[in-house]
Design a binder for these strands. Structure first.
Lengths: 146, 146
DNA sequence: CTACGTTGGTTGGTAATACGAACAGTACGT
DNA sequence: ACGTACTGTTCGTATTACCAACCAACGTAG
């Protein structure tokens, strides 16, 4: 019990990260429900919002097995929110793109999620927010590197 | 690049939060897999690690419907990691407690998760980590209040 | 140019997750 | 004692996710 100095603090940080993660997940849950979607579907829509994306890219972004992604895209396609477009240079591949309705939902959902997350941070003074953002960015970068 | 100051930054923050959430989730995924568990099961074990907890408390902590929790506890109990103990004061209620094996896995998993999260933050100087922790704590508190 | 290994995606089977509605049993106030 | 509220389970359904096996198209070695 003597050397609990540093350890206590890092445990605090880990604990904080876990709770923050819960918050963010809950934001996704609520927003998704508001639009009659699942959190995963919202995520997919957000990723495709910036233009057509290939399945390979998506599996990497979502950390999903390809078969899992196939199912996810299937369900979202069945709801008429995205469409599979054949890749012009590779007849095996396909690009996922939003339909009109999908675009609407993607934009709305993304807006809602961003708004709610922003609201969560609204208690922090701007300087603190900037620091928070860069601190997180560094952690993300560190992970990408390691 | 001139006057988009505020909005761009908050979007950055939201984006950062989402990515951070992905990181934390992946940590749980990997740790869970290492111990032949699911992320949800790891979460459950961690929550019960500090002593017996009632189902009601768990549904609140995990933001789950009671029927979902019943299933989760069922599966973890079937693996012999927890046991349902009758509440002495209320014959409807039950307290979830760890078995020996469960305790072992809970401690190991919690240790691994904490360790990995700590490692993620190891790039940050101590002062920055402290600030990060308190900033997150404030967001969590703000959410709990609102 | 053909044969072969690789890659992109789907299929099929299984387990876990999560919800809602309906239910049983207990607690408790009136 | 009765009715209401609460605790947890059961049942049915949809989604998520994995793995192994597979098909089709690509690309290259020979």
């Amino acid at each position: 019990m003597t050397t609990t100095t540093g350890t206590a603090k890092t445990a605090e940080l880990a604990e904080a990260l876990v709770r923050l993660t819960h918050l963010v997940q809950q934001v996704f849950n609520e927003v998704a429900r508001q639009h009659d979607l699942t959190p995963q579907q919202v995520q997919l829509l957000c990723l495709v919002a910036d233009g057509p994306v290939g399945m390979g890219e998506l599996t990497r972004s979502l950390h999903l097995e390809k078969s899992s992604l196939t199912g996810l895209v299937d369900r979202v396609e069945r709801r008429g929110l995205v469409a599979r477009a054949r890749d012009s240079h590779d007849r095996r591949a396909c690009q996922i793109q939003l339909t009109g309705e999908g675009k609407r939902l993607a934009i709305e959902s993304h807006h809602d999620v961003t708004g709610r997350l922003e609201a969560l941070a609204s208690e922090l003074p701007p300087a603190e927010r900037t620091r928070l953002t860069s601190a997180i960015a560094r952690m993300v970068a560190a992970d990408a590197a390691g």
